[in-house]
Design a binder for these strands. Structure first.
Lengths: 153, 153
DNA sequence: TTTCCTGCAAAAGCTTTGCAAGTAC
DNA sequence: GTACTTGCAAAGCTTTTGCAGGAAA
C-alpha cells in the first residue's frame, strides 16, 4: 500500500497532516462522504480541523485528479467525494447517498459502451476522444406511490 | 404539437401564464438553461416574473416528471434543466454548459448497455429494475496543459 | 526563507421559504 | 370559495475567500 506522502508527491501536492488524514479517511471508506461527513470522520483524531480546510483540501485533490468530485442527486444537497478515480459506475440512491456499482456489474455497464460511438462524439465535438470521460450513473427512482420520506440526516 | 395546458393537465399541474411561458421556453431551446438563463429568456415577454417563481415552477415540473433537473459539472454552479425526459446522453462541457449527445450517437451509447447488467444491479440492490434509470454522461475534460479560462458568462 | 496551508469568520452563490395578494379550478 | 401560485424579500445551505499565524519544501 503506497503511503499518502508518496501519492501526494506524485501529484505535486504538499504533504500536511490534515491532507494525510483526509485522504486516508476518504480512501478507507466505501461511502462517498460529503465534506461535512468527512470532517466528522476525521474530527475523531483531530479536533481542530476546519470545514474550510476540508473543502480546500478536497478541491486541491480533485483539481489534480487524485480524487473525484461527485455531484449529488440532481444537484440538490452537498457534493460527495470518491477516492477511486477509475472508471466505475455509481448508484444514486433516493435519499441522496451514492454507492458504487459492484465491480462485475460495473464492468458490464461501462464496457458495454460502444467505443466507436465515443469517437463519433469526439468528432462531432471536435475533441480528441481521449479527452472524453464516460460517466455511467444509475439513479434509483422513488417508488411511484411512495410518500416522500426526507430522512436525510 | 400538444398544448402546454393539456400537458399540465395530464401531469396534474395547474396552468398559469408563468408556467406556460417557462415550459414553452424550456421546450423550445436545445441548451439546458439554468434558472437564471430561463428567467432572462422569459423576461422578454414578462417583466414581472421572479426568480423564485422560476425555481418553484421548475421544481414542480421536475417533481412530477415533466422535465429533468440536471446537476451541473461536479455540482459546481447552478442546476440546469431539460424539457426532454427521454433517455439520452449528455455532454458536460468544461465551461459548465450541457449539450445533448446527437441522437444517433446517443442511441449507440445507451443501447450498447447490457440490459442484463441493469437487472443484476436491481437484484443486488433489491429494487425492481424498472425503478433504475440509466444516466450516461460524457464529460469533456480540459486539455491537460490548458490555462483555466473561466469565461463562463 | 519562501511559499503554501490552516483555521476562523465573513462573504458569495444558489435555492427555498414566509407572507400577502392574486388566480385557477 | 378554496386551495394553490406569484412576487418580493429574507433566510438557508453549500462552498469560497481574506487574513494572520504556522508548517512544508
Amino acid at each position: 500500500m503506497e503511503h499518502a506522502r508518496d501519492i501526494f508527491r506524485r501529484f505535486g501536492l504538499r504533504c500536511t497532516r490534515q491532507r494525510e488524514m483526509l485522504y486516508e479517511a476518504l480512501a478507507a471508506t466505501t461511502s462517498h462522504p460529503t465534506a461535512e461527513e468527512l470532517l466528522a470522520m476525521v474530527r475523531e483524531s483531530d479536533t481542530d480541523l476546519s470545514l474550510a480546510t476540508v473543502y480546500n483540501t478536497l478541491d486541491a485533490f480533485s483539481e489534480c485528479g487524485l480524487i473525484r468530485r461527485l455531484s449529488s442527486l440532481d444537484g440538490k444537497g452537498p457534493c460527495r467525494f470518491d477516492a477511486t478515480t477509475s472508471e466505475h459506475a455509481h448508484v444514486l440512491l433516493p435519499d441522496g447517498r451514492i454507492t458504487d456499482v459492484p465491480e462485475e456489474i460495473s464492468a458490464g455497464l461501462v464496457r458495454a459502451v460502444n467505443p466507436s460511438a465515443l469517437s463519433s462524439l469526439g468528432g462531432h465535438l471536435g475533441v480528441p476522444s481521449d479527452r472524453l470521460r464516460l460517466r455511467v450513473t444509475v439513479e434509483v427512482v422513488a417508488e411511484p406511490g411512495a410518500r416522500e420520506s426526507e430522512d436525510n440526516d
